Amino acid sequence: MTAEKNLPSWKKTVQHIVDHKYFSRVIIGLILFNAIIVGLETYPTIYENYKQLFFQIDMTLLWIFSIEIILRIIAAPSLKHFFKGGWNWFDVLIVSAGHIFAGAHFITVLRILRVLRVFRAVSVIPSLRKLVDALLMTIPALGNIMLLMSIIFYIFAVTGTMLFREVAPEYFGSIQLSLLTLFQVVTLESWASEVMRPILHILPWSWIYFVLFVLVGTFVVFNLFIGVIVNNVEKADNVDKEVENTHKEVTELRKEVRELKELLQQQINNNIK
């Protein structure tokens, strides 16, 4: 509280601007506008006719986003505090890269950076940021699931190569082809009509292999993925609720302390009189 009171008036003004609800809404609107411009650039006829206009709009947006980053840095308690956030690093890198490659001949790089700039909507919208953070929290748990899935894939790939090498060499001619085929099967992309049925026509019992793999690989493992992600999203929600409750408790405690100080001051004044 004392640190906030000692802040210069201009810094408080910048904090008020950055924390205002319309500030984030304007930035989100500009990011969406940037997304529309990037989409229009994919049409060759439109891009060639309005190339200069697109460049001017892009540079204008780049400087607006740069000013936004500068304001957020100024509004932060300190530079160290600002760069503690991973999303702040992401925003700075995306905007800085736009300045580094501006005017260069790397047209493809520039267009990719413009597309990445659209991804900044995640860092601006709190609900999306929370969802991505929850997904990142699943990475350690997903490692074990990926290991389990690799073992299942390897076992079925070796078995499929042994069973169907002679019947369908284009799908199970080697372990590499078998792994690629199983990846197609696990995505459920035309696996029955293109892969299973031609083999089933020659080996009537082959359905057992494919049904087992679909049951284990698709329904079991994918449900594990979904379960881990949902669990981490719920954890992130609970953490946010705990932080919000703690903030409310601290606010109420400060209010009670303030009232107590006022009562004590009144009592002291009465005793003096």
Rank of each mutant, 00 (worst) to 15 (best):
A192S: 07
G173N: 07
I57V: 13
V228T: 07
F222A: 11
N6R: 01
G227Y: 08
E189C: 02
L40G: 08
L110M: 04
S78W: 01
L61H: 14
L224D: 07
T187G: 08
V26L: 00
D133L: 14
G227W: 15
E259V: 10
D19H: 01
M162A: 15
I69M: 06
P44M: 13
Q184A: 04
W89H: 13
T108F: 03
V109L: 09
L177V: 07
G29R: 00
I73K: 02
K130H: 12
S150I: 00
M146H: 01
L179P: 14
L163I: 03
L135W: 09
I28N: 00
F153G: 01
E252I: 13
P198D: 03
G39N: 09
T159H: 06
F172L: 12
L53I: 06
N270E: 12
F222K: 13
A102M: 09
S9H: 01
P8D: 05
K273Q: 09
V92M: 10
P126R: 10
T138D: 12
L40T: 12
Q176A: 13
V230F: 14
R258D: 12
L128P: 15
L188K: 10
T159R: 11
G85Y: 13
K84S: 15
T138W: 10
M59G: 15
R111S: 00
G217E: 12
F23G: 00
T251M: 15
